[in-house]
Design a protein around this nucleic acid. Sequence first.
DNA 1: TTAAATAGGTAACATTTGTTACACTTTAAA
DNA 2: TTTAAAGTGTAACAAATGTTACCTATTTAA
Lengths: 211, 211
Amino acid sequence: MIREKLEEYYSVVFEKDLLDEIAQAGTYKKVKENELLLDIGDKFHQIPLILTGAIKISRETKKGDEIVLYFLERGDTCTITFGSGLNSSKSKVRGVAEKDSELIFIPVEKLEDWMVKYKSWRNFVIDSYDIRLGEMLEAIDTLAFLKMDQRLFKYLTDKVQIMRSTSLNTTHQEIAVDLNTSRVVVSRLLKQLENEGKIKLYRNKIEVLDF
Amino acid sequence: MIREKLEEYYSVVFEKDLLDEIAQAGTYKKVKENELLLDIGDKFHQIPLILTGAIKISRETKKGDEIVLYFLERGDTCTITFGSGLNSSKSKVRGVAEKDSELIFIPVEKLEDWMVKYKSWRNFVIDSYDIRLGEMLEAIDTLAFLKMDQRLFKYLTDKVQIMRSTSLNTTHQEIAVDLNTSRVVVSRLLKQLENEGKIKLYRNKIEVLDF
DNA sequence: TTAAATAGGTAACATTTGTTACACTTTAAA
DNA sequence: TTTAAAGTGTAACAAATGTTACCTATTTAA
């Protein structure tokens, strides 16, 4: 069953032998919306490959301040640390299912083996890091250069892409947490976006019109 | 000569055979303070290993807004993209020598070879990515959670570490560019830090007292 | 079915950050 | 040596963001 799922989503990425090994060593798992996959400080013994769904990656300080970094989708891998040698292999980010998702978990011991054996795995690992770094840079740009109204609109349009729907079921409070601001500020700016004709507001729901 | 330098700085990190290969394939280079090593959008055919000195890594938008991400030191590698396969291998960041530095440049073709051949190289690459991601996360935390006065003080203390000196030769204008704010704001907050007894201000110079 | 909790709207105000303007001093260039 | 440029200090004001308070509507739980 894992083998079929892998065939469906990763046959372009990995060579046949590697697909077999992943199917053999990996564990298939379904997770529900809002399920916590990985918290900050957790040691992970397995790394996830995403088959379907979406994972929200966020960062939190000891004080409880929080901010969303980016979303992961099919073809992405969730971890940010493969933890070779020196590394403590503790997660520096949190991953929560943004919608119901399917994953395959791979034991970390395999990662190093496959690096030697499979060129496609080496590429996948390096590409994953590069993509992750790119997303972090985008997060940095957003924080450093955008005003809150632009950050808010970017958040909404990003979420439309990830959720594959222009209708987002979310509250102002949730958005405020994700952007590390206050509910009042979010409500204010959302109303402004609505007046500009970019979105339409409902209770527990936002329609994104212009994206 | 390269071999000796490598021996001095990297003998703990790399196995002997790999040191030989690096010495053989690499090019030694000295760069002066403020020299541009790598600009955004540049394709790079070589990646640098830092022997001595410090490199300032920053990000700039098309509009010219700029922000410093972190500093690199001995033992670090400067690149953020090894560019395997799909990747365009164009730099997403800028690297400028923060002081006179010594580097060894390695042709990118070797990176993949050594990934297969040397465990210490695999560890180095993965560790480099992890460290880079860690630094990006720190940059994100700084931007997301700190006020400008705290960001400014962090910038100063970070720079004290990197420069190995509590006396920084810099202008308010330079700092303003690095933090993507205005000179007036920097002057205001620096004066405030001086009044709190944390720093002492001179023309073209800042003494950091409390770090 | 009533009470409590959640979601959202908005005003008033505080704080932080950004902008403009101008003064003064020091350094570099003509 | 005079002039110009660069570096810094500071006031006054503008804009963006954060906070408190209170209102209404809707949903959930007792």
